[in-house]
Simulated scan of single mutants.
Amino acid sequence: MSAPRWVNSAVTGRPGSSGERVPVPVPPPVLGSSGRELAEVRAPVPALLSVIARDAIDLVTGPYSHRIRACQGPVCSVLFVDQPRPGTRRWCSMRGCGDSANPAEYRRRHREAAKAR
């Protein structure tokens, strides 16, 4: 098991004065049949939430905070980290949002070109 992370006692529900930091063990990752990383189901909810909160804080305060983008897909609300060097990624996934947006953009450009003639 990895070293415990420290969280506020108000988050854990453990006794102690408000603001007291207590260790909460990080639940070990378990790989499912699909190969995705899943959280141990028997882990206490506050421990799982503390991991999610800590990772979110690390993301928004870390070196890639300026690269967090919202997908430009018309019905998508996914946030992603734009890691390629140019920093021009527009969609969370080319297979999903990108594949549907590219033909729509192509049709829009050709409609405008036809109107301009």
Rank of each mutant, 00 (worst) to 15 (best):
S2K: 08
S2A: 10
S2W: 05
P4I: 14
P4W: 10
R5Q: 13
W6F: 00
W6H: 00
V7C: 14
N8V: 10
S9K: 15
A10L: 10
V11Q: 14
T12G: 15
G13L: 05
G13I: 01
S17P: 11
S17E: 15
S17R: 15
G19C: 13
V22E: 05
V26L: 13
P27T: 01
P27R: 04
P28Q: 09
P29F: 08
P29T: 05
P29R: 07
L31I: 12
S34H: 14
G35M: 08
R36Q: 11
E37L: 15
E37I: 15
E37T: 15
L38Q: 09
L38Y: 00
E40W: 10
V41N: 15
V41W: 14
V41L: 14
P44N: 06
V45K: 14
V45D: 15
P46N: 08
A47D: 09
A47G: 08
L48G: 03
L48W: 02
S50V: 02
A53R: 02
A53F: 05
R54H: 02
A56T: 01
A56C: 05
V60Y: 07
T61E: 04
P63T: 06
P63M: 02
Y64I: 05
Y64F: 06
H66A: 11
H66M: 06
R67M: 04
I68W: 05
I68N: 04
I68P: 06
A70Y: 01
A70S: 14
C71L: 07
P74H: 03
C76I: 03
S77W: 00
S77K: 08
V78S: 07
V78L: 08
V78N: 06
V78A: 10
L79T: 03
L79V: 03
L79N: 08
L79I: 01
D82H: 03
D82W: 02
Q83I: 09
P84A: 10
R85E: 15
R85H: 13
P86T: 07
G87E: 10
G87C: 02
T88K: 05
R89K: 15
R90A: 03
W91A: 05
W91G: 07
M94Q: 04
R95S: 11
R95G: 05
G96N: 11
G96Y: 06
C97H: 07
D99K: 05
N102D: 00
N102C: 00
N102P: 00
P103S: 06
A104P: 13
R109P: 00
E112F: 10
E112T: 13
E112P: 05
A114I: 07
A116S: 15
R117M: 10
R117P: 12
